[in-house]
Design a protein around this nucleic acid. Structure first.
Length: 850
RNA sequence: GGGCGCUUAGCUCAGUUGCGUAGAGCGCCGCCCUUACAAGGCGGAGGUCGCAGGUUCGAGCCCUGCAGCGCCCACCA
């Protein structure tokens, strides 16, 4: 019984089938299955920032084909989706969208309404108000994302959704943190930290990027004391001279060897600083001797720490020099006054002023020389990072622990990478770690640290003895909840307590997506059935953040990998092969493509991108996908029309068996490709077979299937058509889920996405050891006949008096049983076979009377 | 500075253990209303496989060096 529509169409398939899948629970996870039966995926929770672009579609479409393959292979798929909504990305969007900024000193305003349009100056709002706005906006964004994913046809179980700001994620984050702390894997320290002066928060090594910036080198003369000669240093940051604590040169540098241990006097301020030696000082750079400031760059931090130098900080958290001079013993009576002139200035302003002062004082050697040099930025930031000393939470990551580092490298080798060379990115990251993982942020919309601090009787906060939440309390908000043994009246009072005001960085939560998704501790039964997970798909740009951090935390908490395999997808480039950029206006939203070409077509494009390979948005490729989907509709309609109600029969004709034998090879190849996570190869091979099937096989058997010959031949063709169609549609199902489901529904019950993946063994039962050559040679001959007609500008319906096929004996022998089909398909009256070394077909067309 | 990847037709890319006159799609040109498909089908032209060596009976595939592009990492005064 077939239900083939008169005029098959792609229109409306997405809405119809996604609704149906939802209603039928096609992708619902069955938690009664065992770990061995389950395939679990640690889906990347997209950053819900309101922007939907093709990059969002690319990797998820690729992953979905792998997931659908697994499901058809019989695995019970655990495929949750999450939204990464906490963190700075959301805060920024809220600031811009509503025109507000968070001021934690303000009290909650219950009736607060954000401005209609964001004004020029941001409206200050309390932290609870700010968090409310974040929640409000992310809810809208999350709906848009869910719609996008449903339309793309992701086969996730929408009942398993989580958000990184949600209660469950908070509980997991806090619990994991407390356990890290208890085991000594997390700690608090007051230390120099890379600091974003605009967002006013510390940032982690993983969030840095270098940018080439214009700057200038300045040669500055430090004064020798006690009759020693002056020393000229070179610096790009003369404004930090007041923060200078030493000069440093390489221990072997003959030019400075006899100055080590001497003191020199800083220009403008007359502060005595020692000349010291350290191997990191590069004799080739500048004048061979550098000033060490607290802190101009990360090398300063290394020198400061390893040489045990004092701290003389001048950088404020707002990116301006602090108003008052640092604690120093200046020999120059003008020092403090000069400094106060700089205090309050931005880095840029202070630099310009210092240069003037140096020049006036005769301490500038020559003029500044413009250069460009790499400067560290927060990856989302717009001003260079500064280094300030702050109290922060860290998780040990092996930066100063070679043993741990070796273990993490070994974990990396344990993980199966697809493609394998992506592992080197992980390794170079681990090998290059230089500080522990800084997880605290001085921000607002994030998971709070479940920590309070006692206040002693003098009103001093005792950070050394944090009061920790109990696991059964989680999640807690230390700004609202009180620690055990205290009540809220004691907040902020001597003898009372104060809550930790920081929040965790978003990666501190995202690094636990396996635990969040599988509901670690909240649902132990589910957890044991799904963890460690099977697959982590993600982009190569976040190996150093997401992948590394997830692996680290699983290592700490469970002593295992969080998943056995990871697939790393490529970048999306715009059609000009540039990285996508909103400012260039080259962003087309996925929805536009969905509307114009259909979801299957967009998926086709995404899945044509090889694993791990950067891929350009190619409208042409999307069109090809659409054409393929339409072809599947039409070919299926035709095949089912021919089959009618009779698909029962034995496959007896050699060409039918030969075609099916070739199809078996395809099934094996596609299966092998998917087993190696190569969805694109599977698609490519399936597509290639399918077009040949349409061009050649359908044409060859058309007449026989219609009943041109005997009944046995007709039934053989129908049976073969049915098997071939069923097989091919299932091979397409992971890639083109909508059109596959549509076609499947015409003659099958149940969803194709729960139907079994084609089994070569079953097909072989119908084909036996059929000769693959019959199908191939028949297709070759048919192709030559078509070519002859086309090149003589004849219709493909034109009749052929005689076709002479020259070929090897083996191929002619294989062709023989298919001759009737070839004659029908080519409208050939007579065929002659002649043995020859090379394949050739001579075609005598019947001349028209005209 | 170290590392990884890429370099095949005008464009986008296949080419998995070395062996068929090197493939596909798009674009281009030509033909065809063929009872599944004319917002389609069929066919054609088009490449010294980045450069230079080497291994081999045989190399786009293996080795060495070089170049260009992209990316990752790096304590870049």
């Amino acid at each position: 019984m077939t239900r083939v529509p008169e005029k098959p169409s792609l229109d409306g398939l997405e809405a119809r089938w996604s609704e149906r899948w939802d209603a039928d629970g096609t992708y619902r996870f069955d938690r009664t299955k065992t770990r061995e039966e389950i395939y679990s995926i640690d889906t990347p929770p997209p950053t819900v920032s309101g922007s939907l672009h093709m990059g969002s579609v690319f990797g998820y479409a690729q992953t979905d084909s792998i997931v659908r393959y697994r499901r058809m292979r019989g695995a019970e798929v655990f495929y949750p989706m999450g939204w990464d909504d906490n963190g700075l990305a959301t805060e920024r969007r809220v600031q811009n969208y509503f025109g507000v900024r968070c001021d934690p000193s303000l009290a909650y305003a219950p009736d607060f309404v954000p401005p209609e349009k964001p004004g020029k100056d941001a409206v200050p709002v309390s932290r609870p108000n700010f968090v409310e706005l974040c929640e409000r906006l992310t809810e809208i964004d999350e709906q848009a994302f869910e719609e996008l994913w449903r339309r793309l046809g992701l086969s996730v179980d929408w009942a398993l959704i989580y958000t990184t700001i949600g209660e469950s994620a908070q509980r997991v984050s806090q619990r994991a943190f407390l356990r890290n702390l208890a085991r000594g894997e997390a700690y608090q320290a007051e230390a120099p930290t890379l600091w974003d002066v605009d967002d006013r928060t510390a940032v982690a090594q993983a969030e840095l990027e270098d940018r080439e910036q214009p700057g200038a080198t300045h040669r500055v003369r430090f004064g020798g004391v006690d009759g020693d000669s002056d020393i000229v240093i070179e610096t790009t940051r003369p404004e930090l001279i007041p923060a200078c604590v030493a000069l440093v040169a390489h221990p072997d540098d003959a030019r400075f060897r006899d100055r080590f241990g001497d003191e020199v006097s800083t220009p403008l301020f007359g502060v005595r600083v020692p000349v010291v030696a350290h191997h990191l000082a590069d004799p080739e750079k500048g004048t061979g001797i550098a000033m060490i400031c607290t802190f101009g760059d990360v090398t300063d931090v290394v020198w400061w720490r390893e040489l045990r130098l004092p701290t003389r900080s001048v950088m404020g958290r707002d990116g301006r020099l602090t108003p008052d001079p640092p604690d120093w013993e200046a020999t120059d009576p003008e020092a403090d006054a000069r400094y106060r002139e700089l205090g309050g200035k931005t880095v840029k302003q202070a630099r310009a002023r210092v240069v003037d002062l140096l020049r006036d004082a005769g301490r500038l050697e020559g003029e500044p020389v413009p250069i460009t040099h790499p400067v560290k930025f927060y990856e989302r930031g717009s001003r260079p990072l500064e280094i300030v000393t702050t109290r922060q939470w860290y998780i040990r990551n092996g930066a100063d622990d070679p043993e741990l580092r070796a273990v993490l490298l070994e974990r990396g080798r344990e993980l199966h990478w697809h493609p394998p060379h992506m592992r080197t990115r992980y390794e170079s990251w681990v090998e290059g770690l230089n500080t522990d993982w800084l997880i605290s942020r001085q921000r607002f919309f994030g998971v709070p640290f479940p920590v309070w601090y006692p206040i002693d009787d003098d009103g001093e906060v005792d950070h050394a003895r944090p009061l920790l939440a109990r696991e059964d309390q989680l999640p807690v908000d230390p700004s609202n909840d009180a620690p055990d043994g205290y009540d809220d009246e004691q907040r902020g009072k001597p003898g009372g307590f104060v809550g930790d005001t920081d929040v965790m960085d978003t990666w501190a939560t995202s690094s636990l997506t396996p635990q969040i998704g599988t509901r670690w501790e909240d649902d132990r039964d589910l957890f044991t059935r799904t963890f460690p997970m099977n697959l982590r798909p993600q982009g190569g740009d976040i190996i150093r953040t997401w992948l590394f951090a997830t692996l680290l935390r699983s290592h700490y908490e469970h002593g295992t990998l969080p998943w056995s395999d990871t697939t790393i997808n490529g970048w999306i480039l715009d059609p000009d092969r540039k990285k996508m950029s909103k400012s260039k206006g080259n962003v087309v939203t996925p929805v536009e493509y969905f509307e114009r070409f259909g979801s299957d077509a967009v998926r086709y494009w995404a899945q044509s991108g090889r694993p791990g390979v950067d891929t350009a948005i190619d409208e042409g490729q999307i069109k090809v996908g659409r054409r393929l989907a339409i072809k599947i509709l039409n070919a299926s309609k035709f095949a089912l029309g021919v089959i009618g109600d009779d698909s029962g029969g034995d496959v007896t004709e050699p060409i039918d068996r030969s075609m099916l034998r070739t199809l078996t090879d395809l099934v094996e190849e596609a299966t092998g490709a998917f087993e190696g996570y190569d969805y694109s190869r599977a698609l490519e091979r399936t597509e290639r077979f399918f077009w040949g099937f349409c061009d050649d096989y359908l044409e060859l058997v058309k007449q026989r299937a219609y009943g041109a010959g005997d009944e046995g031949g007709a039934r053989s063709a129908r049976r073969a058509l049915e098997l071939a169609l069923s097989t091919q549609v299932r091979l397409f199902a992971p890639h083109l889920p909508f059109v596959s489901e549509e076609v499947w529904s015409w003659w099958q019950d149940g969803s194709i996405h729960r139907a079994g993946w084609p089994d070569p063994g079953t097909l072989l039962a119908d084909t036996g050891d059929a000769d693959r050559l019959t199908y191939h040679v028949a297709a070759d001959v048919l192709g030559e006949i078509r070519k002859a007609k086309t090149s003589r500008q004849k219709s493909l319906r034109a009749e052929v008096d005689l076709a002479v096929v020259r070929d090897t004996a083996e191929r002619l022998h294989a062709l023989e049983p298919a001759l009737a089909d070839v004659r029908h398909a080519g409208r050939v009256n007579a065929i002659e076979l002649l043995e020859a070394a090379e394949f050739a077909v001579e075609v005598d067309l019947t001349e028209d009377a005209a």
